[in-house]
């Protein structure tokens, strides 16, 4: 629903605020789907930080309007074709919430059964994140660090510091 409203909004400020609300709603959805860690992160990151960053970038540019469009048809066609294809492919997917689905057969049972004895941490998400998949998390922290370097280079904050010293 919020996503549909975002499509129609032309004022960029309200688009940004609706983006924040949309994140909060999806966080609630994650709680319903039992992913408490993910919901926590989405609420803090999506609804909090990313809205603040959007607003601060918006304050720099200060452009308030989205222009009127020429022709909606090609975009609409592309989106509908993609949507139809994806819908068709979901027909092959296992039923939602099915405990016998292939997703739950591979490594997940091992994490659920053995992780407490092996790692001794009740929160399985934490133990998988930091222990079994430590390399993933290392790569991910590196991505965040690289993003910082990219932002600082683009905005020229590195040069500015050198000028001061």
């Amino acid at each position: 629903m919020t996503a549909l409203m975002i499509i129609n909004m032309r004022n960029i400020l309200s688009v940004i605020m609706l983006g924040g609300i949309y994140s909060l709603i999806s966080a609630i959805l994650f709680v319903v789907l039992d992913a408490v860690d993910v919901a926590f992160t989405e609420a803090a990151v999506g609804a909090g930080i990313s809205t603040v960053l959007f607003l601060s970038a918006f304050a720099i540019t200060g452009k308030h309007h989205d222009l009127k469009r020429r022709n909606h048809f090609p975009a609409l066609l592309a989106v509908l074709v993609m949507g139809a294809g994806l819908m068709y492919s979901t027909l092959d997917m296992p039923a939602w919430g099915d405990a016998e689905a292939p997703v739950h057969q591979h490594v997940a049972p091992r994490y659920l059964e053995d992780s407490y004895a092996e790692v001794g941490v009740p929160n399985i998400v934490t133990s998988v994140l930091a222990s079994y998949r430590g390399f993933d998390t290392l790569g991910e922290v590196t991505v965040v660090f690289t993003a910082l370097i990219a932002v600082l280079l683009l905005l020229g904050a590195i040069r500015e510091d050198e000028d001061q010293s």
């Binding site: 408490v36 860690d37 919901a39 926590f40 992160t41 803090a44 990151v45 909090g48 930080i49 941490v121 009740p122 929160n123 998400v125 934490t126 994140l129 930091a130």
Partner: peptide, 15 residues
């Protein structure tokens, strides 16, 4: 407290 409840480094850093 990330070991026992929802939470951990990412969330703590963001907060």
């Amino acid at each position: 407290h990330g070991d026992y409840g929802p939470g951990g480094g990412f969330q703590a850093g963001v907060i």
